[in-house]
Amino acid sequence: MEHEQYKNDSTQETQEPGKEDKPSSLMEKIQQLGQTNVPQLSNDSKIHCLTIIGQIEGHLALPPQNKTTKYEHIIPQLIAIEQNPKIEGLIIVLNTVGGDVEAGLAISEMLASLSKPTVSIVLGGGHSIGVPIAVSCNYSFIAETATMTIHPVRLTGLVIGVPQTFEYLDKMQDRVINFVTSHSNITEETFKELMFAKGNLTRDIGTNVIGKEAVENGLINEVGGIGKAIKKLNELIELQKDKEDVIIQ
């Protein structure tokens, strides 16, 4: 192996760029991935998976070192999923710190209006605008250790300080509250109570709900992981099929 490595080094300058495409040696694969092979599925999967990770990017493109969820990636994917008859269900995996309110609400509305069964699962964190995305699905799960921060809409920088700005922010917040209360079992009072609670977050108002608490407040349907989520999604797919059969008859 060492000998081969030496040979590779000496010929590197004359190597063509296209050479990388060749099936790479075992050594190279271990360097790249830390593993040699992965299992292969034979047929097309009827369940697709979307990950909402990092920051939800709005109108400002974040620097490349930020991990972001871009709505211009997510929304065309959702349209493709809605149109493809082979896809029967969608699972949303969330681990987000939040981000742009309007981009987040756009994704939530798209998910809520999808005709195919959807199940969301919050792993790690589903903070601020991640909350409407989590509740927009037909059924939602939260991992036992996952957290969700509920807090009022905030802006960082670039604000014109006039009374209308405050009203605009207030209306924006109402849109979030309306969306969450109409897509989950939480009441408006409880949600607002959590949103404006004092003493839970350092020098800020709001609440950080963890796993079971989110379920107790009615925000999320159930505590569980991937296994439960896939099982629930399969159940929802069966229900959808039964409904379609009735319509045809």
């Binding site: 990388e20 495409d21 991935l33 092979n37 697709h48 493709a80």
Partner: peptide, 23 residues
């Protein structure tokens, strides 16, 4: 960036893999 879980099992384009687009 795909939503198809099968694409994540493709060893040729796992994150970290080097690919050539010149073909």
């Amino acid at each position: 960036m795909s939503s198809d879980p099968n694409h994540y099992l493709d060893g040729r384009c796992c994150p970290g893999a080097k690919i050539s687009l010149l073909t």
